[in-house]
Computed example of a mutant assay.
Amino acid sequence: MTEKQIVVLGAGYAGLTAATRAGKRGRVTLIAPESRFLHRVRQHETAAGHPEHRPAVAEVLRGRRVRHLPARASRLDLTVRKVFLDNGDAVAYDTLVYALGSRTAWHGVPGAADHAYGVERAGEVAERLRTAERPGTLAVVGGGATGIELAAELAEAHPGWKVRIVAAGQVGGWFSAKGRRHVHTVLRGLGAEINEHRTVTAVGPEGLTTTAGRIPADLVVWAAAMEPHPLAAEAGLTVGPTGRAVVDGHLRSVSHPDVYVIGDAAEVTVPGTGTLRMGCATAQPMGRYLGNVLAGRTDKPFAFRYAVQCLSLGRREGMVQLIHGDDSMRTSVLTGLTGRLIKTAIVNGVVMSLR
């Protein structure tokens, strides 16, 4: 009897985790251009010039029945069940795992894609800072977790630079009052300037235009939002308002049940928890679950509850915000060295959990 062909698109938190688990029993083809795992939640460290922590994909897959094809998926034909690659090849599948994740969203802001660095270009930010003739002004656009971590890390690593964080709403506005105060205290203590309620309307070579006036900047890092890869919608999978593929309780596409969608690409609604947000905290549990489904270890629906939200705030500070299972905030936070050590343990555990 011919063995079913499982194809996984994407080697991020969800895709790589699913591939390693499914590859314990089945034969899997992993399609992703990366030779090393992109540890996205540590991109702020890369931008600051710290050593990267990116294990080789081959090492993560060691001992598994997984073939890695270093290519990009350019088109899907869901009728004939084939993935077409940018190198001209095509790969047939019986079961497809779509885990292409998300990318920087520019939201049509004039000049943003031309004059700002998305978080995917963290290495280029580090090089710009390293080779600059003199310190200048650096603006981080986005008051979410990525923007906060970038602003803190860059301000601490490059104290000669004036770091500004610019947000359309409040910086860390979703945290509890105690958590938000701590974030602001640490950022200001590192010398970062906080600019809230300023929507960026244009980006140019000399800085930002916002709804509250100009903000000069020699270097702009864009961490305002992420969006799913458009290939799912282009292929004909049913997607929701944000472009994420809508899935059922077993993470199967509601329009194409032979396609599983996981990670940032999936719009997942869990009873009692709600529609899951994008991020490592939700992507890797999806990958673990689906890997076990494909390996025949479970047929139960996907279940998920949140536990904490955590931030790195430079090398010596961190924050762990305690939350309810539906992602709403509790009042308590853990800060200082305790928060930093917990965040470090969680981040290190992510890599260990890939296998």
Rank of each mutant, 00 (worst) to 15 (best):
T2S: 13
T2R: 09
I6E: 01
T20A: 06
R21Q: 11
A22I: 07
G26F: 10
G26N: 13
A32Q: 09
R36V: 11
F37I: 07
H39P: 06
E45H: 10
E45M: 07
T46F: 07
G49H: 05
H50V: 14
E52S: 15
E52H: 11
E52K: 12
P55M: 07
A58V: 13
G63F: 14
V66K: 01
H68L: 06
L78Y: 02
R81D: 02
K82G: 08
V83S: 00
F84H: 15
F84R: 09
F84K: 14
N87M: 10
D89E: 12
D89K: 12
A90S: 15
T95F: 04
Y98M: 11
L100M: 13
L100N: 04
L100Q: 07
S102H: 02
R103T: 09
T104L: 00
T104N: 02
A105L: 04
A105P: 06
P110Y: 01
G111Q: 00
D114K: 10
E120T: 07
E120L: 04
G123L: 05
L129P: 01
L129V: 00
T131C: 12
T131Q: 09
E133F: 09
R134P: 15
L138R: 03
V141S: 00
V141L: 01
G142E: 01
G142P: 10
G144E: 14
A145D: 15
G147P: 02
I148Q: 01
A151V: 03
H158T: 03
H158Q: 05
A167I: 04
A168I: 13
G169A: 08
Q170L: 13
Q170Y: 14
V171M: 02
G173S: 03
W174G: 15
F175I: 13
A177I: 10
G179R: 05
G179P: 08
G179E: 06
R180I: 11
R181G: 11
H182P: 10
L190D: 10
E193R: 15
E196K: 03
V200K: 00
T201Q: 06
G204H: 10
T209D: 09
T209Q: 07
T209F: 05
T210A: 03
T211C: 05
A212R: 12
G213S: 05
L219V: 03
A225R: 13
A225L: 08
M226H: 13
P230A: 03
L231K: 12
L231F: 14
A233R: 15
A233Y: 05
A235P: 07
L237M: 02
G240M: 02
G240D: 11
D248G: 09
S253I: 01
S253N: 01
H256T: 06
I262R: 04
I262N: 07
A266W: 02
E267V: 03
T269A: 14
P271K: 06
T273K: 08
T273W: 10
R277F: 14
T282Y: 07
Q284P: 09
R288Q: 10
G291T: 08
G291S: 13
G291F: 02
A295P: 14
F304A: 00
R305D: 11
V308Y: 14
Q309C: 08
C310L: 08
L311M: 05
G314W: 00
E317H: 10
E317R: 10
G318F: 06
M319G: 05
D326Y: 11
M329I: 10
M329N: 09
R330D: 13
T335M: 09
G336Y: 01
L337G: 13
T338D: 11
R340G: 14
R340I: 15
I346F: 15
V350M: 14
R355Y: 11
